[in-house]
Amino acid sequence: MNKKLGFLVFGVLFGFALSRVGASEYDLIVGMFIGQDYTLVGVMVTAIIVGALGMQVIKKFAEPVKSGEPLRISYKELKKWSIPGGLIFGLGWGISGACPGTVLAQIGEGKLFGLFTFAGMICGTYIYARLKENNTEL
């Protein structure tokens, strides 16, 4: 399968699922943080369990992967700034009621203010690129 086409298709599936469980709803994300609605905790815990089981299946029965290469699991190292970065991300999550994936589903659904969260994310990534010019530890 062509990688770009494949990711387009998997992206549609991802966006559809996010939208259908209400992950693109401000009320469900913020409701989770103020302890009013735990639907999305259920979604995430289910996804983590299914993902973990699926990875065991891949390791046992489907390695090497389809292309014939050995499985290469990407590990995100904990760096000096990872924890503060996580806090900054969390603040944005609680303010906007969206994350980098769900904001895209919001845009597809026609939520106008999702476009502003989206534009902010591009600018935030740009700020990171500028900061990284002078700080290799980031």
């Binding site: 924890i83 970065g85 900054i88 969390g90 603040l91 303010i95 969260t117 989206f118 902010g120």
Partner: peptide, 12 residues
């Protein structure tokens, strides 16, 4: 909120 998401996710 978006700026914090973009900056935070890259740092994290």
């Amino acid at each position: 909120g978006g700026i914090l998401l973009g900056l935070g996710s890259r740092i994290a």
